[in-house]
Computed example of a mutant assay.
Amino acid sequence: MIDVTRDYLDKCRRMIATVEKQSEDIRKAAGWFAASILAGRMVHVFGSGHSRIMVEEMWPRYGSFPGFNPIVELSLTFHNLVVGANGQRQAMFLENVPGLAARILRNFDLSARDTAFIISSSGCNVVPIEMAERFRQQGIRVVALLTREHAAQSISKRQDGKKLGDFADLILDTGAPAGDAMIRIPGLDTPVSPGSTVGGAMVVNAVKAEVARLLTEAGHPPKVLSGAAVVGEERAAQLFEQAYDEHAHRLAELYRRVGDSPAAAAGR
């Protein structure tokens, strides 16, 4: 009998090696993100489809901290109903509608001091590509998290054939294979068990750790959401309130002059 559990875990170990080889680029991305946060601005994190998982892995959850703006559109990421109203067919259609990225970003007063973290395993769907393109047009550095092997073998849904990587200042790789699913079962002609979530979570949390280090070294240690089991109930509650308050204050800066700046006007 084939040990599919061991096979999957072995492939995950290979992804660890792939992530480790990107240590220098992870530190570079963290440096850009930390600079935005220290400037009082935010890192815009976007992903459609199941890439939403990586957005929420960055913030907010235990072990994370303010400074990141999670942009999650329910119309692109709400998979629970699968079919019918709000079904997956509609979500997959919408993530390839040109112009939607501009409408989403019209809600924010962007600044060149911001940075962006765009997640898309294939790097071939229109909305994530246009997100990166719009950010770059505003002078905002873009870090892309994709699966290099999968992106290389996939065809862009965009008419000009450009992919997410074409609008990224830096590309990070989940290390998953083309098609994402990693396990072959005897007698089954299609593989199962994707890997990009595992690889992506490793990259996201490595970046997060590096940002926390840089903020702390700069004299601005982040307010980290922490469990009561770690810091005690009183401290956990205090950090919870402080972190969410800081997020609200940072987000307020993104709304305060919406419609008044060239950045907002460009999204109309």
Results as ranks from 00 to 15, higher is better:
Gly165Gln: 10
Ile71Thr: 05
Ala228Lys: 11
His220Ala: 14
Asp173Ser: 09
Ile118Asn: 04
Ala243Val: 01
Gly31Glu: 07
Ser156Gln: 03
Arg113Cys: 14
Ala29Lys: 01
Gly175Ala: 03
Glu233Tyr: 10
Lys162Glu: 14
Gly87Phe: 03
Glu57Ala: 04
Lys21Asn: 09
Met182Gln: 13
Ala201Ser: 15
Phe78Glu: 11
Glu56Gly: 04
Phe167Pro: 00
Pro177Ala: 10
Leu94Met: 15
Glu133Pro: 02
Asp166Gln: 10
Ala266Gln: 12
Asp169His: 07
Ser111Phe: 06
Arg136Lys: 12
Trp59Thr: 04
Val198His: 08
Arg268Pro: 11
Ala229Val: 14
Ser121Gln: 14
Lys163Val: 05
Lys223His: 12
Gly47Ala: 01
Asp245Ala: 09
Ala144Ser: 06
Phe78Asn: 14
Ala209His: 10
Arg268Tyr: 13
Thr18Asp: 09
Trp59Pro: 04
Ile171Tyr: 04
Met182Ser: 10
Leu81Arg: 15
Met58Phe: 05
Leu105Asp: 00
Ile104Val: 15
Thr174Lys: 03
Ile53Tyr: 02
Ala102Glu: 14
Ile185Lys: 08
Arg106Thr: 00
Gly67Met: 07
Val204His: 07
Phe108Glu: 00
Val204Glu: 01
Met131Trp: 07
Ala168Asn: 04
Leu225Lys: 02
Met182Pro: 10
Leu172Trp: 02
Ala132Leu: 11
Arg148Phe: 07
Leu145Met: 09
Val127Thr: 13
Arg256Asn: 03
Asn69Leu: 15
Val97Gly: 09
Ser156Asp: 01
Ala35Asn: 06
Met131Asp: 04
Thr190Tyr: 09
Leu164Trp: 08
Phe68Gly: 04
Ala91Asp: 07
Asp7Val: 13
Val127Pro: 01
Asp114Met: 10
Gly49Asp: 02
Val143Trp: 05
Asn107Leu: 13
Ile26Arg: 02
Pro191Gly: 13
Arg213Ala: 09
Ala243Gly: 08
Ile37Glu: 01
Leu164Cys: 08
Ala243Tyr: 01
Asp260Met: 12
Trp32Gly: 00
Ala206Cys: 14
Gly232Ser: 04
Ala228Thr: 14
Glu234Met: 11
Arg13Leu: 13
Pro186Arg: 10
Pro221Val: 12
Ser23Ile: 09
Arg89Ile: 15
Met1Pro: 08
Ala102Asn: 11
Arg103Ile: 06
Arg14Leu: 15
Phe65Gln: 06
Gly175Ile: 01
Ala29His: 01
Arg213Asp: 08
